[in-house]
Amino acid sequence: MAKEVVFAGFGGQGVLTAGYMFAEILLKVGFNLTYMPAYGAEMRGGAANCTVKFGDGKIGSPLMKDVNLLVAMNGPATDAFEKLVVPGGTMLVNSDIVDRKIFRSDITVVPIPFNTLAREEGNDRGANIVMLGAVVKYTGITDVETAADIMRGYFDEKGKSKYNDANTRTLHRGYES
């Protein structure tokens, strides 16, 4: 069966970009995948999420169903999607924003200060890269060096190579979280 990762938060937090970069890494390391975004008309502030499914075989529905790994970047996302995590699954919660301390007991909950870790690397807008590093770690799809290589390639193509050093450090912080 395909594994399912959901990135959820406000528009502007980088959940769609983090999910897309994760999809790029999956493609380059040889998985089949689907990436399904869901967002409102707003560029910033509305609810945004994406579902990435991956595996070796055919993938049926690309829509959110049984979440193996949830990245919840704010309170509403935590409240909305915690119930969709499969028993034994994992939820990474943005401890910079989410106040709630009590979660389901049948899933693993990992508080990660996504914004703080990015800021500490001088990469204020790099919370999405922290997410990416953490998701690479908790899915175990590849090692952090391979992921960093593919991420740099993604930014090279976008003409944003000048951020590669900061982004690489930020990715490692996410991977170590």
Binding site: Y20, A23, L27, T34, Y35, M36, P37, P62, L63
Partner: peptide, 9 residues
Amino acid sequence: ATIGQLVEP
């Protein structure tokens, strides 16, 4: 819409 917005290899 789902097929138009879906990203796949």
